[in-house]
Design a protein around this nucleic acid. Sequence first.
DNA 1: TATGAATGAGGTTTCATTCAT
DNA 2: GATGAATGAAACCTCATTCAT
Lengths: 192, 192, 192, 192
Amino acid sequence: MARIKDTTKVDAIFNATLKLVREEGLVGIKMSKVAKAAGIATGTLYIYFKNKEELIDNLYLKLKRESSERLFKDYSESMTLRQGFEYIWRGYFNEMISHPAEVIFIEQYYRSPFVKEEMLAERQALVVPVVSLLRKGKKEGIFRNDLSTNLMVVMLIGVLKELSRWHNSGRIKVSEEMKEKALVSAWRGLLA
Amino acid sequence: MARIKDTTKVDAIFNATLKLVREEGLVGIKMSKVAKAAGIATGTLYIYFKNKEELIDNLYLKLKRESSERLFKDYSESMTLRQGFEYIWRGYFNEMISHPAEVIFIEQYYRSPFVKEEMLAERQALVVPVVSLLRKGKKEGIFRNDLSTNLMVVMLIGVLKELSRWHNSGRIKVSEEMKEKALVSAWRGLLA
Amino acid sequence: MARIKDTTKVDAIFNATLKLVREEGLVGIKMSKVAKAAGIATGTLYIYFKNKEELIDNLYLKLKRESSERLFKDYSESMTLRQGFEYIWRGYFNEMISHPAEVIFIEQYYRSPFVKEEMLAERQALVVPVVSLLRKGKKEGIFRNDLSTNLMVVMLIGVLKELSRWHNSGRIKVSEEMKEKALVSAWRGLLA
Amino acid sequence: MARIKDTTKVDAIFNATLKLVREEGLVGIKMSKVAKAAGIATGTLYIYFKNKEELIDNLYLKLKRESSERLFKDYSESMTLRQGFEYIWRGYFNEMISHPAEVIFIEQYYRSPFVKEEMLAERQALVVPVVSLLRKGKKEGIFRNDLSTNLMVVMLIGVLKELSRWHNSGRIKVSEEMKEKALVSAWRGLLA
DNA sequence: TATGAATGAGGTTTCATTCAT
DNA sequence: GATGAATGAAACCTCATTCAT
């Protein structure tokens, strides 16, 4: 019986790719470098991925999936609005600062010869729970009704992304206190 | 007298490069493509730029410079706080939606084998006027004093970037009204 | 196990390079031509040599080394003066006529953008045994003491080089008899 | 009336070419470098020479011609054998040390894609007076008759070339005394 | 005639992919 | 499955030559 394709090896490849993206962007990804960083031979890469494009695409898909899973793992519709809000906000922030390479990869992927239309569509997925939370808050009369939900999403996500970006780049160190302040400000910005 | 080195040509090269970045990111910049898009021979590129790296670095520098200039052209310290705020906010937003390729380029440049340490430093420049506006507001007692200036910058810029990103990607169409709403919300978020 | 890096291939590359040098000098070395002449793909060249410069430098080093080895393989300090002289003289001559491409390559290498200072130093190496032979002869009172050793080296080597050059270019055919005459004349020219 | 092609400029071009050959050999000759070194525009080169090959070929021809002229300017068949020998020997040596770039150029030219068969033939020219001197000496019974004239030429020229080469490269400084010694040794080597 | 920017063929080098082991 | 040398298309870059001024 033939040995089974080694999932350990696939992970090594993904991690190696991510490492290279973090260090020098999508431009810096060379199949030989990926192989070396993953501790395997170049040829072996092609056993697990038909070609470079497929490696990149699969990595993107995997990251999206994992990120969603981590993000909404314990989220439940039964939380109070405020609980849900805090859960999502903190989750999102933690996600971005504990997986910086993923963030970079995804940003660069969107603007590359690799993107496929169908993958862009997926982008929405991450936002779905946020939208439903906001809708719920509006319906309950707790959130402002004069702002479009889209704008509210933008206000929420924009601050989260920028805050984590500053943190990841080392420009600022986001303390627990600062995080709290940001969270409260965001919450207040939504209140009716 | 021979044909004279043509600054018009440098612009054509920059524009061609930007076009390619918009279409397929930094990865898509191929010297031959740039030349063709600029309507010149490949060799001619090398009259104006020693090599690909220098072309990219110079483009980055130029974009940063131009963007700053446009952004703060008519800004004056004598404006009222509210006027200054609005000027900067609208300017920033317009900048990002009227120069999407520049935004993409700069984002990708930061994560590429091209970045130089000294260029990263420059990144702060764009933020300086924002910081000084916020400080002024705090001193006048108009803005909250319990938020660090950095956090306020993040809140402001984050929303601006995300809003323009959604606009540029076509996910939403930012109407005058929505812009107004976003602006007012941002302003209120800063008030003491 | 994959194919193993092949020292045979390095030789093929060196020989191909030498062939091109013989045919049209250093100017004629084109990486693609070298590859074709060596019967490999262009890219393969770069597995064995980082770039053209390294190929040329290594070839130079190899030729110098091999030439020295061949030249003084069986030379021994215990030979009589006359035996040693004859050994070196004939060895030098044979070397030059049996490896004409090497001679051309080395001559052209000295005057090229490829030379490195440290490699010029090596040039002396070949002459060392000649110098020690001449010193020995002088000490024994067999060779003239009124000529500097340097001048004697020049007289010896100059004739050898020119003779082989005429031979290699086809201007003359150096017979055994002529060789004998030249050797004896050289010997006499050194005698006290 | 049109201006006449400027011979001053042709000289500047030739000198610039020679300078480059001295510095980095035939490989180092780039038309743009020649132009810059000659203090003219690249395009101007092509007014004086149809192309690179013609520039090189003409330079070769000119050097050969000038060298011959200088060498045998005051030589006369009526000199005594010894006078003639000394005249030629010293002339040859001076020629080589006062025109090192020419020597290098000619050596490299012989082994390059530029050589033409017909130009190789010319190579003999420089040697003609030497040959006739040697023949005269043999007929007069002063020079050895057991050595072929060719071999004698080789012995003479070989030492001269090597001596000047060592001098030019800086390996030795040829004093008047050393020159005298070399000349006398060469003369003695020919005597019957 | 003089200029030097412009050209593009051709050289150098890289790298995704294949293939012999 | 695994390896990494080998491949060659395609990228980068140079430079002899042309050409608009």
